[in-house]
Design a protein around this nucleic acid. Structure first.
Length: 224
DNA sequence: CTCCCGGGCT
DNA sequence: AGCCCTGGAG
């Protein structure tokens, strides 16, 4: 089973997820990408709502906000000490380098954008790719822990495959198309959080169930 | 490998 | 009470 078949099965099961990432402007996507690291989206939404309620919308708004205030505002998303400092640094960078205009950064080639993003503390592979895919809207595929878990349970790749290797593997099996990249990652997240869960996976309702023998393998291990 | 951390789910 | 969450840095 190749990645495009997986995509189609997931889309069939979950339906249209569209571009999936909430789109209230590119900067909010950047902020959301930082806040959602190792945190649930429901908690991120609380933090994003706090930001809106405090009239914080731009890199300038964040940079001018006292750090302690920012920490309190984003607290629900967890890791708030680190995330506040990183958001502040990133806002400062965008402000000084691009006058706060993300479009100036996004006008560059996606490989350049990626390199620049990765130099910022707090932005690693997945966050950089999420920003490029959903905020800059360029065809950069996003891989995450769900993707790794699903692909390794399907026995398609090894469990500890590197980020870049898994990304390369998938990209070579699907059309280079923005909406497909955006949707596929969204569908993988839906599967990973609702069905192919870390503990107690719901294999009975899995759209990939017939192609996957994760539970069977697990039982074999438990019986031996 | 360990720390960072609140909130939701079980 | 314990586990997990759309990671990243040191």
């Amino acid at each position: 089973m190749n990645s495009f078949e997986i995509y189609k099965l997931l889309k069939n099961h979950f339906g249209e997820v569209g571009s999936w990432w909430p789109k209230d402007g590119p900067f909010e996507i950047v902020v959301g990408a930082i806040l959602t690291q190792q945190s649930t989206w429901t908690n991120v939404e609380k933090a994003l709502k706090n930001l809106k309620d405090s009239n914080i919308f731009t890199p300038n708004d964040i940079f001018e906000l006292p750090l302690e205030d920012l920490k309190q505002i984003i607290k629900p998303s967890g890791f708030f000490n680190q995330k506040a400092e990183r958001l502040r640094k990133i806002s400062e960078y965008l402000l000084y380098t691009y006058g706060g205009e993300l479009e100036l950064l996004f006008a560059k080639d996606k490989n350049i954008i990626r390199k620049e993003l990765l130099e910022l503390k707090g932005i690693g592979n997945e966050t950089a790719d999420s920003i490029i895919l959903y905020a800059a809207e360029k065809t950069e595929f996003v891989v995450d822990s769900y993707t790794k878990r699903i692909y390794s349970r399907l026995k398609i790749v090894e469990e500890n495959i590197k980020y870049e290797d898994l990304k390369e593997y998938i990209v070579n099996e699907i059309p280079e198309n923005l909406l497909i990249y955006q949707e596929f990652h969204g569908l993988i997240v839906l599967l990973g959080k609702n069905i192919c869960k870390k503990k107690n996976p719901n294999c009975n309702n899995c759209p990939l169930g017939s192609k996957c023998n994760f539970l069977i393998n697990k039982k074999d291990i438990n019986h031996s």
